[in-house]
């Protein structure tokens, strides 16, 4: 498996799209930090990039890479290599590459300009989010043989997690606004890794706003060290769950 990771990395590090991604992230982070006089405002603008662009690029890049490597994966399957090792090898390779891109493009500027605990939470959330969407991309990829269909599924997943889920959640909140919903919301947030990542950063960033209103409940929960560990664990489940399903499918898949 290590060899496969090594060779995937060798291939991806020469990939122009990945390079473009790094440049995009760097430009937006340096740009946002330099345009805003206030560092914390730069970070909050960058949160949009973190919650929208990072998942989108992660899932699309991975899906496209998977389908472009389809024949190569076939060739690897024809070699005396275990299927699980092949898939996990490619997964780790893509994951490491995208994480590296994230840390160069966003990690570096955040550490340089911010360097506070908020910044670190920001980077931790971003890393987990990257891995979650790489996992989801593998799931989307093994579900179908057709590249267009695979990319379609990937886009739908992204759309669902960044927008549709929250929209439904807001409607549920409106519909049941007579009931105390905070605990339910905490539970529902576990169903969306993007929300979890956002909450983790937000609690460090907009702490005064969240302390008010009913935000106190979220803060009590996610602000405690138990809550943070809980949120991270759920994120890790979000990393592990799609890829393990993908693995099960891939093991029996007809290539």
């Amino acid at each position: 498996m290590n060899k496969i990771i090594k060779y995937v990395l060798h291939d991806i590090f020469r990939n122009r799209i990945l390079l473009a991604y790094v440049v995009l992230l760097s430009l937006s982070s340096f740009g946002l930090f330099m345009m805003n006089e206030d560092v914390s405002k730069g970070l909050s603008s960058l949160l949009t990039v973190l919650l929208i662009v990072v998942p989108l690029v992660s899932i699309l890049f991975t899906t496209i890479y998977f389908f472009n490597s389809y024949e190569f994966i076939e060739l690897l399957v024809a070699q005396p290599l275990k299927r699980s090792n092949i898939l996990l090898g490619v997964y780790a390779g893509v994951g490491i590459s995208l994480l590296a891109a994230f840390w160069i493009g966003i990690g570096l500027p955040v550490i340089i300009f911010d360097g506070t605990i908020v910044g670190w939470y920001f980077l931790l959330s971003g890393s987990l989010l990257t891995m979650v969407f790489v996992s989801l991309a593998f799931l989307a990829s093994v579900l179908t043989r057709d590249k267009t269909q695979g990319i379609g599924i990937a886009m739908l997943l992204w759309f669902y997690f960044t927008l549709v889920f929250d929209g439904i959640l807001l409607m549920v909140m409106f519909a049941f606004s007579d009931y105390p919903l905070e605990k339910l919301t905490i539970f529902l947030s576990c169903l969306n890794p993007v929300d979890l990542a956002r909450i983790m950063v937000l609690l460090k960033m907009d702490i005064s706003a969240l302390m008010g209103y009913t935000g106190a409940v979220f803060n009590q929960f996610f602000g405690s060290s138990f809550g943070i560990i809980f949120a991270m664990s759920v994120m890790l489940v979000w990393v592990a769950f799609p890829i393990s399903i993908a693995l099960r499918i891939f093991k029996r898949k007809n290539l």
């Binding site: 929208i52 959640l169 909140m173 706003a209 209103y213 009913t214």
Partner: peptide, 20 residues
């Protein structure tokens, strides 16, 4: 305004949807 009417909506603060 939404949070005004629905305090628990603070949970979705800074989500893509809220920004939209």
């Amino acid at each position: 305004q939404i949070i005004e009417k629905l305090p628990s909506a603070v949970f979705l603060l800074r989500s893509f949807m809220a920004e939209l």
